[in-house]
């Protein structure tokens, strides 16, 4: 009997080893470990054995049984892994094919610049004011120290609707409107992004409609150095810390003193090129200390309050920043143009 068990064990192990798949392995399990299997049969015949032999053979039979069981389990694991591997092999795909597109739109480049400016100035304690695009002659000109027949009105040839109404030529009318609302009490701290209009034929560098961001701060003790600091912050934010900034005296009827700001040309690094007309500098914005007449007309006492104002051409900033060569791109909405402004940039 002992021999028979040993024999069975060897036989079973060989069959386990040669099993090709789970089905064959299961047949082996049924054949050797099932209720009608040979080991069970051996155990049934134990009655014929001497009593002292019974535990020995019993133990041996259990060992054989356990060994076969163990081997089957091991083999089963191998075969199962094989099945999974085959399945995975079949499921393999071409990972170089393009993914399912998730279509996203994005901001217009002008909005991108405006939002960036808004976020910067909000951080500095400003609010965002918005105002009418069809303005009265008073707010567009007179309240800004530009009486009728002032030669500087020529600088901004305008679209009139009637004697008294015109499309605003700049966002500056909101200076007077905001100051009036404050009824002579500071601080006033606003920026005004918006559309403005001038009589220009549309070409690569001119547009009859464009966008500006006005800034106005009025409070006690506002200094020209504050204007410089604020504009430097803006210029560096828009064009990078490595740009040099040049402050040039200029003239606007509603500021005194007035200033224009140039940044060193990004294309030639200040050596002079076509973009900067050989000067190494590019003009990006203008501003100045609010003219006492403007303060007075809008209800602020210039002896007590001082302020600064500035104006930024949004298209100009975007064109310089992104190297855009034609201002009309902003208004034709070619999707190949618009989509270029999707990526995040720091």
């Amino acid at each position: 009997m002992k021999e028979r068990l040993e024999e069975l064990k060897l036989e079973a192990l060989a069959k386990i080893e040669s099993s090709q798949d789970l089905k064959q392995l299961n047949e082996v399990r049924v054949a050797y470990l099932g209720k009608k299997g040979p080991i069970t049969e051996v155990l049934r015949g134990m009655g014929k054995l001497a009593p002292e032999e019974r535990p020995v053979i019993g133990a041996l039979a259990n060992d054989v049984r356990a060994a076969i069981q163990e081997q089957i389990e091991a083999k089963q694991k191998v075969l199962e892994e094989q099945v999974i591997a085959e399945k995975l092999q079949k499921e393999s795909i071409d990972i170089t094919l393009p993914g399912r597109p998730v279509v996203q739109g994005n901001h217009h480049p002008l909005t991108k610049v405006i939002e960036e400016a808004e976020n910067l100035f909000i951080g500095l304690g400003y609010t965002i004011a918005e105002g009418p695009e069809v303005e009265t002659d008073y707010y567009n000109f007179e309240a800004l120290n530009l009486p009728k027949d002032h030669p500087a009105r020529d600088m901004q040839d305008s679209f009139y609707i009637s004697e008294e109404l015109l499309l605003r030529t700049h966002t500056s009318p909101m200076q007077a409107r905001t100051m009036e609302k404050h009824e002579g009490k500071g601080p006033v701290k606003i920026i005004v992004p918006g559309k403005v209009y001038r009589r220009d034929d549309d070409d690569a560098t001119h547009s009859h409609q464009f966008m500006q961001i006005e800034g106005l701060v009025v409070d006690e003790g506002i200094r020209m150095s504050d204007l410089k600091g604020t504009l430097a912050l803006f210029a560096k934010k828009m064009f990078g810390e490595d740009r040099d900034i040049r402050y040039r005296p200029s003239f606007f009827p509603f500021t005194e003193p007035s200033v224009e700001i140039d940044i060193s040309c990004k294309i030639c690094n200040g050596d002079g090129c076509n973009v900067c007309k050989g000067t190494g500098w590019i003009e990006i914005l203008g501003g100045g200390m609010v003219h006492p007449n403007v303060l007075r007309m809008s209800g602020f006492d210039p002896e007590k309050y001082t302020g600064f104002a500035f104006g930024i051409g949004v298209e100009r900033i975007a064109m310089l920043r992104y190297g855009i060569d034609d201002i009309r791109h902003f208004y034709t909405n070619d999707v190949r143009f618009l989509k270029q402004f999707a990526p995040y940039e720091s």
Partner: peptide, 8 residues
């Protein structure tokens, strides 16, 4: 995509 067109 955000577009901008003329007011006039």
């Amino acid at each position: 995509l955000q577009a901008t067109t003329y007011s006039l």
